[in-house]
């Protein structure tokens, strides 16, 4: 069973979590061009790699960041979001 470590609730089976995709900076919707906005809405960094992703521990509704290798499915670390850097 795959284990994910919630920064608050500790290590749990991955079935207790919800995956919400890569952390992506949002362009300002008021100033972004239509192309830039479409790029943000639809396009994804689909190739495998080390990614920062949103995950949620669903029983406690705790959102956090996981750094994960999406080719090997290895979670390197998890922590709370600290705002856009």
């Amino acid at each position: 069973m795959k284990i994910m470590t919630c920064p608050l609730n500790g290590p749990r089976p991955v079935s207790e979590f919800h995956y919400w995709g890569e952390v992506r900076p949002m362009p300002n919707p008021a100033t972004a061009s239509d192309d830039a906005w479409a790029d943000y809405v639809f396009n994804r960094n689909g190739a495998p790699g080390l990614k920062k992703e949103w995950w949620c521990h669903t029983p406690s509704n705790t959102w956090f960041i996981a750094e994960r290798d999406t080719e090997k499915d290895v979670v390197l670390k998890t922590y709370f979001y600290e705002g856009d850097q």
């Binding site: 790029d39 639809f42 396009n43 994804r44 689909g46 190739a47 495998p48």
Partner: peptide
């Protein structure tokens, strides 16, 4: 493997695996 090949030609797409 589509996103890997698209990376070779530098084309963006919404495809996710």
């Amino acid at each position: 493997s589509t996103p890997r090949i698209l990376k070779m030609v530098d084309v963006k797409s919404p495809i996710y695996i």
